[in-house]
Every structure is written in structure tokens, then in C-alpha cells.
Design a protein around this nucleic acid. Structure first.
Lengths: 221, 221, 221, 221
DNA sequence: CATGAATGAGGATTCATTCAT
DNA sequence: TATGAATGAATCCTCATTCAT
């Protein structure tokens, strides 16, 4: 992630390459340690020393790779958001970008993202909430991107399948609502009830609800 | 709220009554100060001294009425949750407990609760998230109650209007989803975009989406 | 104890007498509550509110009867010291003020004072130590009085039995030493080992040691 | 004292050695500052900030070396106890472990320990009394060790000199009594009367008393 | 690059004491 | 006299951050 030497195009020496690899490895090790601690102890409770200990580096090293504690959370938010959008986006494209694909993307969110990465769920949906203006800004940006993803997907489906929105319903509100469903269902069943094993069925019900809501707003659906 | 002398049925003396009133008044003053500061500065940034200053009392007085800072947040959560459920519940009952009433309750959430009490929105949806196990417990309890309210309302509508759920869709998942929509729409448009003036239309779109989703899961709707 | 109206010799009215009695009763109730709490929770840990609660009076009432928390401890020290010296003194006089009487006084300390009043032991030997210059002053005065009691008793025995101190041994050092034995034996077996039931035998051993020490310093013993 | 790297046997690098030394030095500096302040101002009155100031470090540094204020007192108790037992033990062994040695050990307590370290006297005999259950536990452990030292010494003398205790006198009670004499004589003449210069003679009188008490309990002494 | 000791501002909390009623 | 709400100074402790080695 940290792009040292980004513009410099001369090939790196062997040892420089190794150092580059080690650097990247350390960066990820620390980030992973922070993720685990933030998720399990809470952002506020997890101290930089604990994070350093868990990553088996010194406190100073953490500050070498990250500006400060907030930065750790922001980077985490970035990586988790990237992964989440990837999982959803890939599922959508893989199934042909029609309404069925939209559903499959929803399933992927629950079954691939939430079930496999409960700690990442805890970070985006719980630990990054209400922390600081800076974090909130990044959080907003991430959620806006996701909302736009959903919105684009909806539009794509419209175009591909010849649907049209009935009346003046704001598609953005629909997208925001869908995000809300994803978020709270994940929070409720993963973070509060720890029922990962049931999430497949839960996700199917949620998607049935969502698709019902969408189809009702279309003409000729 | 603090029920001194709850079981004791002898009528209070005049001066005791006045003290009781002043007591209640102080309690509310401090709670209001905390609400404002938590919403605007953030729970972590707001210090007990600031709260005391804002309420025009001493730090000690805050600790006389509340066990600690966490308790302040928990009481706030309780009062806000009570108000929110009241607004929704009243709107539902007033309109006859049918699907129309369900919709009106949703409108009430957006138009009466969110628009009039943006700070309370900030507390339940942002500042109380991921704070401590104790706060989280109370948050979960509140959201569980709300989910149950929605669930009961759905069931009532079913019975009153002779609807039946198509297939095995879990009504609980639907209820959780609806809560998710309420929460994120409020967060997005009130806390992030500060578009209280548009919330009426936004709420109508959200409700159209929700009702569409519900009706699609009913037989004979 | 609090001698209101000490010099005024006109006989008190009935109601004034009753008030006087009630006043005395309250004073003792509070002092007893403080004793129990100081002994069991420790002087520092026991709050004035706890003391007031235990005595079933208001905080203000405690301050009506006692100047401050320190005063509570000082009064306690006074009363306990008075009781302890009484027990020892009476035993000494009752047995004729000879060496046997000295021994009996020692037995009385262990068997009558320590065994019956472990909380008072905790106050004089533990809770009043190292608290404040003022308390320490009173503690010193009390121990000085006790040391003098022992010293006088020794001298009385000398005179009565025709003994004389061998050489230049300071009788005061002996008296201080004896006080030290009393104190630490009480502390060790009552406060640390809670072995009140064995204290009779323990006291006998201690006294055998003390008497041996004394007799060795006498000529013609 | 703080044994970083205790098991690791590889020789430390030069700079690591220096760090180790500095670490140890700081630790002792802080402890010394605490000792002085506890002894002169009292444990309760001495604030962590004062201690930090006196040691010329930051408050944080104090907490880097010690868990909390209580820990400071406990470590102090440990070091002082170690020193005191060493002084006594060495004197006893140096003089041949007979009754004369026992007496010399007593002299050493008064003349070497009390006179040279009045502040340490204040800590063990005054400032550590009745502070908290944790401190009291350590205090008890220390006094138990001392009592055992005295007991062992007595037994050694018995064996070496062919003495036997007359009757059933509990040697433990004698040991506790001797500790009591040491403690109160030190408290009385050092902490209350500040008569260090007379302590030599005072100690001799106390020891005469003790030895008299002991010899009287022996057969064939 | 890595280390980890040192910093010190900041904040929550306590509790003896006061005083209006 | 009695009450108990109110005060606010005092203090312990945390922990993100820095920087000399």
C-alpha cells in the first residue's frame, strides 16, 4: 500500500526488492493486528502498545508505517471497503448484470463477506462509527461509493431489462435503503447474535424483501 | 426519572414536592446538556466538565445524578428510545393498525422524530455505537424492542387485513431490514447531508420501497 | 461526651433532659458506626456518607456532632484509649498492685480488651497509624499515657515489694517495650490471624516473657 | 530490581548494558524520591506528581516503572525489609549464632538500621500501616519473615548452647513479642522523639530486657 | 529502519465539607 | 437541629505520540 518510490521507474536492486517486500509484509501485519484488536477490544480500548505487541513490532514501527491511530482505522476502512465492494461487484458482473445478478451480489455480501470476515464487519459497521470527523469523512466516502455502486447496478438492470421507475421515486433513496438493510442485518445477526451459520437463509429473506420492494417500483416488471 | 420514594405512599410535604420537582428539573437539564454536547462534539470529546458547565452545575452534581459518563449515555439512550417508539407507536395506532397505519408510522419517524430531533438521531445512530459493552447492551436491547415493535405491527396488519406471508420468509428478518432502512436513511440524510427539509419526500420514497417489499411477500395482497 | 452546658448548674427541664439523652445517644451511634466502618473498610475507604447511612442519620448530622472526619477518629481514639486503660488499670488495682497484679493486668488486656473488642484493636493499632499530624499527636499522647501507666505500675510494684532496678536500665524503655509487645501480639493474633480463641494462652506466654524480662532486671527478685 | 531479560543468557550489547544500567538507576531514583516523600509528607499526602518532580522525571515515567502508587509502597516495603533483615542476619551470623550474637543483632537493628535509615523506619512502621488490603498483605508477609528469622535465631541459639524451653511457652509468641519491642522502641524514640543519638543506650536497655525474658524461659540458662 | 523509554496534557472520578431550607 | 443536594479542588492514571540512540 505505501507507494514509496512510485514515480521512480529504474528497476530495483535485489536487496531493495526484498526490503520492499518486507515493508509491505510489516504493513499488512500491523494492519491485521489492529483489525483484530479493534474488532475484539474496541477501537478506544485497543492501545497502540497492544497493537505493536500483537504485530510483534515496536510502537515506533507502528508510527513508521502509519501516521497515527486514526490513520490505522482509516487505512483499515479503505482496505475493507475495497474488499467488500469487490466481492459485491464481482458477483454482480459474473451473473450478467441483470436482476438475478443484483440478487447474487446481495447473497455474496452476506455469505462471502459477512460470514468470512466478521471482524471486518465489526470495523466498518461498529468500530468506525462516531470516532472523529476525519474518520467519519472517510466512512461517508465509503458509504457513498457503495450507495453509488448499488445505484449504478440498479440503473444497469433497468437499462438491460427495459424497466422504468414508476413515478418519481428517488433511486438514490432506494440505494441508501438497501445499504441500510445490508448493514443492519449484518450487525444484528453477525455482531449481536453471532449467527453466521444461519446467514445464508437470512440473506435470502432479506434479498427477497429487497427485490420485492424494487420490482414494485418498476413499470412492466 | 429518578424515582425517590416510589413505594412510599404518604403524600409529600410542600417543600418535599418542590425539592422533587427541582431534582427532576436538574436531572433533565444535565441530560439535555449531555445530549447536545454528545451530538455536537462527540461522546469521547465531550468532557464531564463541559457537560457540567453547559448544565450550569458543578461536576459533582453531574455525578450526583448519574453514576458516570457511560450512565449519562445509557439514560439518554433510554429516553430517546422511549420517545422514538412512542412517536411510531402512536402514529400506528392512530391510523387504525392497518397497512396505511404502518406507512404513517414510518412517515412519523422521518417527519416527526428525525426532523425535530436531529441531536437525538445523532445519539442513537452515531454516538452510542461501539462505545463499551455496557452501552452496546442497552443499544441492543433498544433495537430489539424496536424490531419487535415493527414485527408486531406487521403481524397485526396481517391479521387485520387477512394477509399471509408467502412461503417461509422470516418476518423477523423483514423487521430488522426495515429498521436498517430507517436508521441509514436518517443517518445519511440528517447526519451526513443535513437535508431535514427534504426528509418528507425522502421518507415517502423509503416507505414506498418498504411497502412494496412487504406486499410482495404477502399472498392475496 | 459533648459537654454542652457544662458550667450552667441550674437543673435541666424534663424535655431538655430528654434532648440531652438523645443527643448523647446519637453521638454514640455515629461513633459506633464510624468504628465499625473504619475497622472493616479502613479509615480512608469509609466515606462520611457511609458512616451517616450506617448510623441512620444525615451527613449533616455527622458534622453537627463532629468537626470533621479526622475528629471522628480522634474521638474514637480517646474513647478506646480510655476503655483500654480502664480495663488494665482496674485489673492491676483489683489484684493488689504487686507483680501478680501486673500480670493480671496483662491478661486483662488480651482476654478482656482484645478478644472482646477486635474492632477497637483495629482502630488503635492499625487505622489510626500514619493518618495525619493531628491524629498522630493524639495517638502519641495516648501511647505516652499508656507507657506512663505501665511505668507507674512498675514503680508501684518496686516499692510495694522492695525491689530495685539492677544497674542503670531505663524503666521507660522497659515500659515502651512492654507496650510494643502488647501491641504487636494483638495485631498479629487478632488482626492478622484472627485467633481470638487462642488469645488466652498466647497472652500467658507473652506475660511469662515480660515478667521474666522484668524480674531479671531487679535486684533481689 | 526489574528483571528484564532474566532468563535470556546471551551477553548484552554495550548499549543494551548501558540502557539496563540507566533503567535500574531511574527505578532507584524514583523509589528514593517516593521514600523521602512518603516518610516526610505521608503516603496519602504525597502525590504522584510530587514524586515525579522530586525524581526529576515525568508522571508517565513513574507509571512506566511502577504499576501505581500502591506498587511504589509495596516495592519500598520489599527493599526496606530486605535491607533490615540483612543487617540483622549478618550481625547474628558474624557473632557466632549464640546468645551474644542474638544481642548483637538487636544492637544492629537499633544502631545500624534505625539510626541510619529513619525514613525507612517511617515507611515500614508508620506509612505502610492500614493502607490497603494489598499493602497489608505484603506487610504481613514481611513481618512473618522477620518473626521467623527471630524464631530461627532463637532455635539456633538453643541448639548451639544446649538450652531448652522451660514448659510449654510458645517460641512463636516470644518471637512476635521481640518484634513488637523492636518496632515500638524504634517508633517511640525515632519517629516520635527523634532521639537517634540516644538510641545506642536505649537499644542496650531493650536488649537487656529481651535477653532477661528469654533466659528466664530456658532451663539451665 | 527499529526500538522503547519518556513525555505530559487530559479526563474521569471521588469525597470531605458546606449551607440553604 | 436535621437534612441532603451541591460544591469543586484534588488526584490518580492513561495513552497517543515523540525522539535519542
Amino acid at each position: 500500500m505505501p507507494a514509496k518510490n512510485a514515480s521512480n521507474q529504474e528497476p530495483l536492486s535485489k536487496s531493495a526488492q526484498r526490503r520492499q517486500r518486507e515493508r509491505e509484509f510489516r504493513y499488512q501485519t500491523i494492519l491485521k493486528a489492529a483489525e483484530t484488536l479493534f474488532a475484539n477490544e474496541g477501537y478506544n480500548m485497543a492501545s497502540m502498545e497492544q497493537i505493536a505487541d500483537a504485530a510483534e513490532v515496536s510502537v515506533g514501527a507502528v508510527y513508521f508505517y502509519f501516521k497515527n491511530k486514526e490513520d490505522l482505522l482509516i487505512q483499515l476502512l479503505g482496505e475493507i471497503g475495497y474488499l467488500m465492494r469487490n466481492i459485491l461487484g464481482r458477483a454482480f458482473k459474473k451473473h450478467g448484470a441483470d436482476m438475478e445478478a443484483f440478487k447474487q451480489a446481495g447473497y455474496a455480501f452476506f455469505e462471502d463477506f459477512c460470514v468470512n470476515y466478521p471482524e471486518k464487519c465489526a470495523i466498518i459497521f461498529r468500530e468506525s462509527v462516531g470516532k472523529s470527523p476525519e474518520v467519519e469523512k472517510h466512512r461517508k466516502e465509503l458509504f457513498d461509493k457503495c450507495t453509488n455502486d448499488v445505484l449504478s447496478a440498479l440503473m444497469t438492470v433497468c437499462n438491460n431489462q427495459g424497466y422504468k421507475f414508476k413515478g418519481k421515486f428517488s433511486a438514490e433513496v432506494i440505494a441508501v435503503s438497501i445499504m441500510g438493510i445490508y448493514e443492519r442485518v449484518a450487525y444484528h445477526y453477525i455482531l449481536w447474535q453471532n449467527r453466521g451459520e444461519n446467514l445464508k437463509n437470512i440473506g435470502r429473506d432479506a434479498l427477497a424483501f429487497i427485490l420485492g420492494g424494487i420490482s414494485n417500483l418498476f413499470e412492466g416488471a
